[in-house]
Nucleic acid binder design. Structure first.
Lengths: 123, 123
DNA sequence: CCGAATCCGTGGGGATACTG
DNA sequence: CAGTATCCCCACGGATTCGG
């Protein structure tokens, strides 16, 4: 029995804890911009402006706010370089990178479900 | 290479599609109540009142609205029995049940991350 | 018992302008 | 370049009431 399976068994033994744990994950991803932000950082460090250009329609205000939240949640690491003008880089932490496992399963489910919905086999 | 891995490779080849697919999944789960509702239905069919009692603090209005959305999304099946008074049962569809794979990975990540956050090893 | 309809408050998020 | 400050709108969700 893998570590993953053991953890899972422990979680499912109490459904409310299960819900809480899933909610924790949902909260990290919630809002309109968290996902695109994490998405762009999956390919490596980026600067603020760079991210603003990468993510369609995001405003500086939103980018700033979301990055701050992600930093508080320990998903993103912010590094300031004392150049002139200052250069600030954002990158995913270990926790942030580990989200890819979750994101992958969500992506696969999303695609499968879209196919099912399109062929209207809804049951 | 498994079916899962093949699908995943296809998704990741285009990052915007990856984001879209994840967003689809997020949208199915979004809002305050979707998750608790799916959670209670994981253990089998339930009637409206039953669910209302199972889910702390939910109002009938919210339960009704969320169930309707979940039905539209093809996650929940609604069955009306012509008894007096009418008896209506809700259950997860195949798509709904298949969400458990995603939910499981989210739960495990949530727990791991909570542990990390508590020992304040945020990087 | 199972909802639908209505009213309403809160806050997430957009637009714009400004600072160090 | 890397953000803040301010204003404003509207969708989410709560409370309550009514109907089949």
């Amino acid at each position: 029995m893998s570590t993953f399976e053991k953890e899972l068994k422990n979680v499912k033994s109490c459904s409310s804890e299960f819900i809480l744990a899933v909610n924790d994950t949902l909260n990290v991803l919630n809002g309109k911009w968290k996902l695109p932000i994490i998405g762009t950082l999956l390919f490596g460090k980026k600067r603020f402006r760079e991210m603003e250009r990468c993510i369609p329609n995001i405003t500086a205000r939103m980018l700033s706010k979301e990055l701050k939240e992600l930093e508080l949640n320990g998903m993103v690491k912010r590094t300031v370089y004392d150049t002139i003008p200052v250069c600030i880089e954002y990158e995913l932490t270990k926790s942030g990178k580990s989200l890819t496992l979750v994101l992958d399963s969500m992506a696969v489910w999303g695609l499968r479900h879209r196919k099912i919905a399109m062929t209207s086999e809804k049951a």
